[in-house]
Design a protein around this nucleic acid. Structure first.
Lengths: 206, 206, 206, 206
DNA sequence: TATGAATGAGAGTTCATTCAT
DNA sequence: TATGAATGAACTCTCATTCAT
């Protein structure tokens, strides 16, 4: 029919992402996913064979899409200054527009880091353009050339990612401490980008 | 009895923290908690009346203890330089020695931020010495006096907390990207403290 | 098509026999049968309209073939000695080369004897040459003429069939009791025939 | 309460035997067993942890009881004549009064002989008085002393057991062939014992 | 304060069967 | 004659919670 744009399979994946992101793996209900996808519960098992299988499929899909978006960033030769400007911006905007992605990955990161690690590793291996080592090599070179102060690429990236991602998970915490509500609108994220870029550039560039 | 060092109640709380931290609220099993605490499942309901009640009790206890440890930091008059040195150190060390705490709070932050917010707010209100506003007032003053570059105390704290906490949740992610395993031993956390303090001081102090 | 040697229908029947014999009616899976037959599940219903229908078709086919093979035995005028020699031999050899048949019938015999009875009765009625009564009449005559000691033809046949068929179902039991494995090869069945024929002739002939 | 004679556990076992014997493992319904036992479905899993576990427990119990009853037979020093008289009688009477036992074991014998074998072997090992080898040793001695004609104790026992047990499983088959209904009452079994003992003694004693 | 037994509601999963093509 | 997708009913199993003692 004309109004059925997406396949059942895709509808299930979309509904599952929402449910898993909202309640975690254990808290998610297969029944709820099926209803939200507008299909019979059994179809879900027909396509994904188990709740766990569906979960992994969602994770896979969502991570692959994410990496596809991030990969362009690192390909061209960059100065560390450019990198520290573009990465947080992209990262924060990506997360801001995909809250379900952030939550899903957050859950998994806490609960079974090994799993998400291997999923990511798998995706990275499959993306020939995005080899992990190049990036870390580049960072090392930056340091060797005296462009950045941090010698260890792992610490370097941790600083970058931490500042970029924290707003999405830790915001409530800072809200509680400060006693003030912070709207998670575009405005907030714009200010967040500014602050992060500023700290990173002043803090890590030589 | 004399040979029973911890009360059943405390044993339950301890076991519950482990279980909730490991599997989240929905994934945790009351049965497992009871067995780990060495008591009968019914006792758990006798003391805490429901799984939810037990969960809140654990959260309460664990957060209160955490804040008690953090509060000392801010009481004395500090320079921003001192603050940016001491806070990440304490924070990272605290988290490193209480992984269950980090995971529990992480879960809750993702799943129902409102809940953990109100728990934290409650604790803070009860701790007369640790009023949130003082800290934020202090930060504002630091900026007014030209000591730090970040005008917004929320952004300021987000930067601090983000860099401090990320190692615990995001580490696997950076591992996957970099393709290198990072041991989470004392050594690693020492290096992490150094890097974070360095970035924060260079990035935010004027 | 030319390359398709067996019709779908026959492929289904063959696969179904294997599956029903291996797992019984309730344990058999329509899906498994279809896959084994190399056809789509829906085809199975197209041909046999239900799992039950397929089961009955298999039973029918398999029993009909069996009786066809047995019937020759009784047609010619026989002495009881000849009968007691030939019947067990044929029976045991038939069962040894059709293990699925034995299991299928065994299941049905235990679970709904009425069903298999009526199937057999139906087949027998349709085979004009193999009227049951003749055989029983013959046995009665043997007794009347003082050739066999057993007066009741039912008991007579029970003894014959029991000794012939038991090896196939009860063998594991005797193995367990005796603690020794008995290979179910041609050799074993040859020895079994000898023993059975011996017992029957000595035990029932006058 | 006074009217509750049996424990839930025993009630479940009894109901399960009936259901498994009637429909086989795959056809049996946990729900049905629970209802018949007058307990909640969940209790069944509380005691036996799975349908499979319950099945094995039933098998175990039923087989152990059976062997307990049979074991007395072989302990005293017997002549083969005595053995061939008493064993079929006991065996047939036992089976006649425990039809569920026969069906259950029959199913298992057909479906997974290995399982029932190991169950039986386990029971036999646990019954120090009933070592399998003694019986087979005795049979061998009988032959050595010229008392029986069958040299192979396995064949000997197969003949004995086959004739004893067949009435219970194969009766419908003979009924179908003969076209006559055979009542499975005490009378029938008495006649069956007579016939079997007669065949065995004439057929195997020297 | 403590326990083993019990329960109801629902969870994930399976399966024979049907529909649209 | 053939198929992939779809379905509803039922199935095994789980789990928070309560009861009797």
């Amino acid at each position: 029919m004309a109004e059925k744009i997406v396949s059942s399979r895709d509808a299930i994946l979309a509904a599952a992402l929402r449910e898993f992101a909202a309640r975690g793996f254990a808290g998610a209900r297969v029944e709820t996913i099926a209803r939200a996808a507008g299909i019979n519960k059994a179809m879900l098992f027909y396509y994904f064979s188990s709740k766990e299988g569906l979960y992994q499929a969602v994770l896979q899909e969502v991570m692959a899409e994410f990496f596809k978006k991030v990969q362009g960033l690192i390909t061209p030769p960059l100065t560390p200054g450019e990198f520290l400007e573009r990465f947080p911006k992209l990262y924060i905007e990506l997360c801001a527009s995909n809250p379900d992605f952030v939550r899903l990955v957050g859950f998994d990161l806490i609960q079974n880091p090994d799993n998400i690690c291997s999923v990511m590793a798998g995706i990275i291996t499959r993306m020939s353009e995005f080899k992990p080592h190049p990036l870390f090599e580049v960072i090392r070179r930056w340091h060797a050339q005296g462009q950045i102060s941090e010698a260890d690429p792992v610490q370097f990236m941790m600083n970058v990612v931490a500042l970029s991602i924290f707003s999405f998970i830790g915001r409530p915490m800072v809200e509680a401490i400060s006693g003030m509500r912070v709207a998670d609108d575009g405005d907030f994220y714009a200010r967040r980008v500014t602050s992060v870029v500023n700290v990173l550039k002043r803090g890590m560039l030589k």
